[in-house]
């Protein structure tokens, strides 16, 4: 049985939704960071699936996915460093406690 393209897209959309809910509802900065990683991987599934089904002869979609992985890694590096700075200042990574600036 050949798996149709739409199945991949549904999985990707579900992952993106899970990540987005995590970003919106979680209070822990590290958890938010990992929710964003899930969203990035949803985009990667899209890229690879489209690349396989829409343009089987070209590999630009798969190349894009590789670059996204590299960028995701550098984002985590910078992000964890910033979270660490926050922790050193207020001994917490709870975003509800990060409230110096109001509006």
């Amino acid at each position: 049985m050949v798996i149709p393209l739409s199945w991949y897209l549904i999985v990707s959309a579900i992952l993106f939704g899970i990540g987005l809910i995590g970003v919106l509802l979680r209070q822990n900065a590290v958890t938010i960071l990992f929710s964003v990683e899930i969203m990035l991987n949803a985009a990667n599934i899209n890229l690879v699936a489209f690349s396989r089904y829409i343009t089987p002869s070209a590999i630009s979609g798969q190349m894009f996915a590789l670059f996204v992985m590299a960028i995701a890694a550098s984002e985590v590096a910078v992000g964890l460093a910033i979270v660490l700075t926050i922790y050193r200042n207020i001994q917490s990574v709870d975003i509800d406690k990060i409230n110096i600036f109001k509006w």
């Binding site: 993106f16 990540g19 970003v23 900065a29 938010i32 960071l33 964003v36 969203m39 990035l40 949803a42 985009a43 899209n46 996204v68 984002e75 910078v78 992000g79 910033i82 979270v83 700075t85 926050i86 050193r88 200042n89 207020i90 975003i95 990060i98 110096i100 600036f101």
Partner: peptide
């Protein structure tokens, strides 16, 4: 604390925006 808080807000909103753009 101020600099770190500004950076965290910039970073978190920034990566979410980047991911939405990517999708």
């Amino acid at each position: 604390a101020r600099s770190a808080e500004a950076a965290l807000k910039y970073f978190l909103l920034g990566i979410v925006a980047s991911v939405v753009l990517l999708y």
